[in-house]
Nucleic acid binder design. Structure first.
Lengths: 106, 106
DNA sequence: GCGGCTCATATCCGCAGTGTCAGGGGTTCA
DNA sequence: TGAACCCCTGACACTGCGGATATGAGCCGC
């Protein structure tokens, strides 16, 4: 009766796991907070950190893969905005499975 | 004005980041679900997976480090139980910062 | 079309994470 | 005390992640 829960493969990761992986980095958390204030292009985000542009770009792609942000090209710039619908749904789906969290959810 | 958000060091990680790291692994998610049903000792948990006992033990220590589980020795066994208070608080603290999640929180 | 600006991708490097097996410490019981 | 059981830790291998630099692709303005 071993491995009865193993349902994912290396290349198709559960959505919720992807979301948690995306959230499990301080820089990406901070990026989300920046995008919560307002949508920003990549250069603006880079300016907030002591990290190179490619590094930020990769963080953004991780967040995009997790569907936590949405990108849109505007001329030369690429504007990123928060996709808080994913945040909200992920939260309800995962935490809603735990009885101890029910009281905190609507 | 770079790096204005950098507030943590390598060895003192923010609690919320530790929680997300702990949650960002499928095996650990499944362990939490097992412990949500009831508290279990290590052997019982190992029996649910195709992983060695030391591997499960490591996962349990990660969950314990994140304060998501509580361990208690009972004779030969070590019983783990879910600490859903941490789950609930983490959820409210982090997701509560995002306007798009307010409607889902009580 | 060319140069310049913005952003993404390729590649490399160091380190952290996840798995293994071997071994040891704590507990129980005879 | 010693054997048996349960679990943790150490050492190692392999993989993945998060940084960097170099380069390419896309979009302007001239």
């Amino acid at each position: 009766m071993a491995a009865e829960f193993i349902t994912e493969t290396v290349h198709s990761e559960r959505r919720i796991t992807k979301v948690f992986k995306a959230l499990s980095d301080s820089t990406r958390q901070q990026i989300l907070h920046l995008l919560e204030e307002k949508h920003r292009n990549v250069g603006e985000i880079v300016g907030k950190f002591d990290l190179s542009q490619p590094t930020i770009s990769r963080h953004l792609s991780v967040l995009k893969e997790a569907d936590l942000v949405i990108d849109q090209r505007q001329g030369q710039n690429v504007v990123y905005r928060l996709n808080d619908g994913t945040l909200s749904r992920s939260m309800q789906h995962f935490f809603g499975q735990f009885a101890g969290c029910q009281s905190a959810l609507r």
